[in-house]
């Protein structure tokens, strides 16, 4: 009788398919960020002028909001493993609420750009900015719905999957924030 060989993937925390999704999303956003910086080389003054119209402090606040939301999701997983359903639901509700705050601040930035006549087609900077941050915002919205679903299921496995997706959204933002808003 043969013993099954241990795979390095056995050590992977959480569901393998969620990690496949996380890696896929990171690859898409990573390519987008590299494309953004590559196109910036063709018009540095234009990109700098366009970036000045963004809310960099608001984006910094949004980073604080999202990493705090990720912290609540991580605590929710600990509560799920401890069998504390009410606590895990409260923590996931807090994480989702902060996701809503993030989307509200993001919508304000889009509204201000729109009011200033700056759209998707105004400059390559805005094309990349709206594609990258808009796609990310869609993931935040999907993550809020997913947190609601796993909060309803309230099992450790479900909460682990939902929290992993939420942390991926968090991870993408901490890489996107300096590239699009600061440098």
């Amino acid at each position: 009788m043969t013993t099954p060989q241990a795979s390095v993937l056995d050590d992977l925390p959480g569901d393998l398919m969620m990690w496949v999704l996380i890696l896929s999303e990171l690859a898409v956003f990573g390519a987008g960020l590299m494309g953004f910086l590559a196109v910036r080389l063709t018009d540095p003054p234009g990109f700098a002028e366009a970036q000045a119209h963004l809310h960099s402090t608001g984006a910094g606040i949004n980073t604080l909001v999202l990493v705090t939301s990720g912290w609540l999701a991580a605590l929710a997983l600990e509560a799920a493993r401890a069998g504390r359903r009410a606590r895990l639901r409260a923590l996931l509700a807090g994480a989702a609420l902060l996701g809503g705050v993030f989307l509200f601040l993001k919508a304000q930035e889009y509204a201000d750009l729109w009011a200033a006549g700056l759209t998707f087609e105004s400059h390559a900077f805005y094309t990349f900015h709206m594609l990258l941050t808009g796609f990310h915002a869609a993931h935040v919205l999907a993550g809020i719905l997913l947190l609601g679903l796993v909060g309803w299921l309230a099992t450790p496995r479900a909460v682990e999957a939902g929290a992993a997706f939420w942390h991926m959204v968090d991870l993408v933002w901490v890489l996107l924030f300096p590239v699009v808003y600061l440098i």
């Binding site: 925390p13 959480g14 999701a73 992993a164 991926m168 590239v179």
Partner: peptide, 21 residues
């Protein structure tokens, strides 16, 4: 940003528990 990404991967996503990965 690099330091933040490492923290999220290792602590929020618990990769610190799987050193090879």
């Amino acid at each position: 940003a690099w330091a933040k990404a490492e923290l999220i991967l290792n602590r929020y996503l618990h990769l610190a528990q799987a050193p090879n990965i």
